[in-house]
Amino acid sequence: MLVMGEVHTGLLQNSGEISESTCRQVLGITAGETVRVSRRPIVHALSPERLTGVDCTLPAASRSRVRGVGTVVSRCAVTGGRVAQGSSYVRVVRSEADRRLPWSHYLARPGVVEVLGKAKAADLAEGFTGDPTPGSPDGACLNLGAVSGRFLDLVQASPLLDRRAPFKIPRTSLRWVAETGEPSIRFTLHTEQERTLRLTHPGPFTPAVVDLCEDLATHDWLLTSLLVIVERARIGTTPGAAAVARLAPAIDHLLHLWMPAARVEEWLTPFWDSLERRPGFTRQWRSLVDRVRDQVAVNTLALLSASAETGRR
C-alpha cells in the first residue's frame, strides 16, 4: 500500500567530529552485527537494523480506527562524524487474515505492518503527514517519531561521546510517505523543526528510498542549523569580530558536510534534482556559505588595516 517513516537528525554530542572507528563503536547497537561504513565522498556510518514490535492504531486523516500489527525497522547513522540520525520506517500492507497472527508471522516480515480491516492508502498518508488533530490523545497511535527519537538518544548517550558539543541546536524531524506511481515529490516545512515529505516513485519500494529520505533529512538539518547560526550572529547589528566569533562553529563543524545525493541511487536522483530546482537547497546553502565567508573576509580586512595603521604610527 504505502511506506511511512520518520527521521530525526541532530548534532552529535561531542566536542569534535568522531573518527570512523569511533563511529563503528557508537553505532554498534546490536552485538555481533557490523556497522556499514562508506568513505566517499563523505564518511557515512550506518548501524545494523533493529525491530520494534507494534500493535496499534495507524494515523488516519478520516480519524477512522485502523489497526496495524507488525514490526518497525529502525537504525542510526552518523554522517561526517558529526551529524547523528535515528530513522524508522514501516511498509503498510493489507493483512490476509482478519485477526492478529502469531508473532512468528510478523517476525518473518521485518518492517511490515499488516492492516487488519479496511484502510485507504491516501487516508493513511494524509493522517501521517498532516498536522496532528489537536486535543486527540494519540498515545495508542503508531508514533514512529518516538521510536526514531529513542534511537537517536541511544547514539547521543554513548559513553564514547564527551557531550561537549560546540553549539546548541535543535533536532529536526522529517516524516515521509512513499508510494508507487507517477513520480512526484513534495517537501513541506511545518513548524521550526518539523518537515514532511510525500514521495511517489516508479516501481516497487526498495530500501534505497529510505536512503534518499535520510539524505534529504541530513541536508535539511544542515541548512536549518546554518540558518539558525547565521541568525544568532546578528550580522550588521553586532560588531564584526563578535559576529564572526559566532559564525566560527559553523565553519569548524558544518560547512564541509554538504554532499547532496551522495548516497542516493541513480534512479532516485531525479527527485533530488527537482528539489534542487525548487526550492533549491544547494542554492540557499551556497548563498549562506558565501555570506559566512564574506563576513570572515571583511573582518580580516578590518583587522589587517587596523594593524597596518598601528604599524605606521
Partner: peptide, 12 residues
C-alpha cells in the same frame, strides 16, 4: 534522563 539529555542538546 532522556528528557534532560534532549533538552541539553538544544538549550544553553
Amino acid at each position: 534522563v532522556q528528557l534532560f539529555g534532549r533538552l541539553e542538546e538544544e538549550f544553553d
